[in-house]
Simulated assay, not measured.
Amino acid sequence: MTEELIHTAYSPEFDFRSLPKISLHDHLDGGLRPATIIELAAEVGHELPHTDAAELGRWFLESADSGSLERYLETFDHTIAVMQTRSALTRVAREFVEDLVADGVIYGEVRWAPEQHLQRGLSLDDAVEAVQAGLEEGMAGADEAGTPIQVGQLITAMRHADRGTEIAELALRHRSRGAVGFDIAGAEKGFLPSKHAAAFEILANGMFPVTIHAGEADGLESIREALVIGRANRLGHGVRIAEDIDITFGGVDDDGQEVDESTGLVTLGPVANWVRDRGIPLEVCPSSNLQTGAVAAYGETIETHPIDLLYQTGFNVTINTDNRLMSGVSLSDEFELLVEAFDYDLDDFLELTLNAAEAAFLPLEEREVLVDYINNAYAELGAGAEADAEAAEGAE
């Protein structure tokens, strides 16, 4: 058991898009442009709720903002329907990269389930290759524009289906051709990671990285299985680890000193302690968590989200978007949301971004390059802000 004291953070002023970002939890079928959905739907004869891009974008946001993960997932029927051909997958993947670049992302991992994209004759390998072609087009365009980015695929199995071992083998086949990790996704409650134990055994034997959706629509049992059976290197969302954290006000701390009644004393249970002490990264998606009801036990606003509790008590928190279309957000928007709610400043975002860089499914040398780049960029931003402040003071 461990105990920590909660502290407070402070607010910055800067352009969030100028911050270099790492995106670890971002679904391909949740990041389409509304205009692209309309064009692709017309090509395949799929009926949409709206054929105006602005109206369609609003429909996705309103439909997803129901407080239910199941309702949230229903919106994907439309995006998946238009992602069934090689050309569509390539286009969506290319635009996905372009939109990340526009938001200041320098490294991203895109997760998606190839088994959902076989309705028009593609094989699993065809689908992965089509997405990889789009990612490479997007990366090449970004490099030519002087805004380089690296993006890898997280090959995902649907947890309610029975194709886990097949998808694990697919991921391993493509490990040197764009695939950087494996995931299971979909309805979490009732479909524990143990359902795919054989797949995780294959991945462990292949020494292939794994991240698992856990601690979003289900609690500690799901998280425990993700760690023990799935050998998860990261937890997708993971916010319900907060259920294993107890907060008391007042009392006595570990040194026998009385604690002020306004100060929260945090005690970690065994699962939370394991996750925190081993630095297992949490892929937290603030806006999505509010939409799906993942953190409804704590309240309905960002101010009640347990992300600040997790961050302040030393969990390895990373910030992500989950589904940019359904949540109507970018990573910059998520950063701004945290400033408004918790007064985070440049130092906080540097720490959160470094957490993500160090958690990336990349070789150590490449992660070190990312870390150096981020540190240098933040140092320049800090120096620039300080110079502006001094100039403003001098002008007075």
Results as ranks from 00 to 15, higher is better:
Ala102Leu: 13
Ala102Lys: 14
Ala102Arg: 14
Asp103Met: 00
Asp103Trp: 00
Gly104Trp: 11
Ile106Val: 14
Ile106Tyr: 13
Ile106Cys: 10
Ile106Thr: 06
Ile106Asn: 05
Ile106Leu: 09
Ile106Ala: 05
Tyr107Val: 11
Tyr107Leu: 12
Tyr107Ile: 06
Tyr107Trp: 12
Gly108Pro: 03
Gly108Ala: 11
Gly108Thr: 01
Gly108Lys: 00
Glu109His: 01
Glu109Trp: 01
Glu109Asp: 02
Glu109Lys: 03
Val110Ile: 14
Val110His: 04
Val110Ser: 07
Trp112Met: 05
Trp112Thr: 03
Ala113Pro: 00
Ala113Thr: 05
Ala113Glu: 01
Pro114Met: 05
Glu115Asp: 13
Glu115Trp: 08
Glu115Ser: 14
Glu115Gly: 09
Gln116Cys: 12
Gln116Ser: 13
His117Cys: 08
His117Gln: 06
His117Ala: 06
Leu118Thr: 02
Leu118Phe: 04
Leu118Cys: 02
Gln119Trp: 07
Gln119Phe: 10
Arg120Gln: 13
Arg120Trp: 07
Arg120Glu: 09
Arg120Val: 00
Arg120Asn: 10
Arg120Cys: 02
Arg120Leu: 14
Gly121Ile: 04
Gly121Ala: 03
Leu122Met: 15
Ser123Phe: 09
Leu124Tyr: 13
Leu124Gln: 09
Leu124Asp: 05
Asp125Ser: 11
Asp125Gly: 03
Asp126Glu: 10
Asp126Trp: 08
Ala127Trp: 03
Ala127Met: 01
Ala127Pro: 04
Ala127Gly: 04
Ala127Glu: 04
Val128Gln: 02
Val128Phe: 08
Glu129Asn: 12
Glu129Ile: 09
Glu129Arg: 14
Glu129His: 10
Ala130Trp: 07
Ala130Glu: 05
Val131His: 09
Val131Met: 09
Gln132Gly: 12
Gln132Arg: 15
Gln132Phe: 11
Ala133Asp: 15
Ala133Cys: 12
Ala133Arg: 12
Gly134Leu: 03
Gly134Ser: 08
Gly134Ala: 03
Leu135Glu: 02
Leu135Lys: 07
Glu136Met: 11
Glu136Phe: 07
Glu136Asp: 15
Glu136Ser: 14
Glu137Ala: 12
Glu137Cys: 05
Gly138Glu: 01
Gly138Cys: 01
Gly138Arg: 02
Met139Trp: 07
Met139Gln: 12
Met139Glu: 13
Met139Ser: 09
Ala140Glu: 14
Ala140Gln: 15
Gly141His: 05
Gly141Pro: 03
Ala142Lys: 07
Asp143Glu: 15
Asp143Cys: 10
Asp143His: 13
Asp143Ala: 15
Asp143Val: 09
Glu144His: 10
Glu144Tyr: 00
Glu144Asn: 04
